[in-house]
């Protein structure tokens, strides 16, 4: 385990003794100091954990570096369908931590962290657009990349790569009509 992130995870476990964080590296590497560590949190406790990670001096994650949605539909040994991964970065302590939240159909909902990091605004909109994971208390949860009237969530694994005929539905402009 990377020396820098160990105290943070220990601190988390001490602070929230009722949560099973299940800390694990994202990928096991030969050089253990380069491993990237990840903790799991339930959607109900997310806000408490995130506010702690942001405000505590020993954690001080000032920046939400990335927010990725993953659809674990056919993933081997996966129990939950959607995962939302928060990549946190602390500039003052120079460490990173990944926080994962798992949610399921029929109503995938995660609390929004926009009140903590403004940078989450568009990233959460993107995850909503692409995966259909709804962020509660988001100030402006609209589709961001796809167009008005689009129903599906394209990055879900059950959506085909070439779409469901959306790209053929236009009026045709001919020489005569122009």
């Amino acid at each position: 385990m990377s020396a820098k992130i160990t105290p943070v995870i220990e601190l988390l476990q001490k602070q929230f003794s009722d949560i099973d964080f299940a800390p694990a590296p994202l990928l096991e590497m030969e050089d253990q100091s380069k491993e990237q560590w990840c903790v799991k949190v339930g959607a109900d406790k997310l806000m408490a954990v995130m506010s702690f990670l942001r405000s505590d001096e020993r954690c001080a994650f000032e920046q939400l570096s990335d927010l990725a949605g993953v659809d674990y539909l056919n993933f081997p040994n996966a129990k939950d369908r959607y995962g939302v991964t928060y990549s946190l970065l602390s500039l003052s302590n120079e460490h990173r931590l990944w926080v994962k939240v798992f949610v399921n159909d029929p109503n995938p909902e995660v609390p929004s962290v926009v009140s903590i990091w403004h940078g989450a605004t568009w990233m959460e909109r993107e995850v909503w657009d692409m995966f259909g994971v709804r962020f509660t208390d988001h100030p402006d949860l609209r589709r961001i990349l796809t167009w008005e009237g689009f129903e599906a969530h394209p990055l879900r694994k059950d959506y085909p790569l070439t779409g469901r005929g959306e790209r053929e539905n236009f009026k045709v402009i001919t020489r005569e009509s122009a």
Partner: peptide
């Protein structure tokens, strides 16, 4: 880009 979001050739809809 043979994907859901890209028009497969503008000549389908424009001269």
């Amino acid at each position: 880009f043979d994907t859901y979001a890209v028009v497969q050739g503008v000549d389908q809809f424009l001269p």
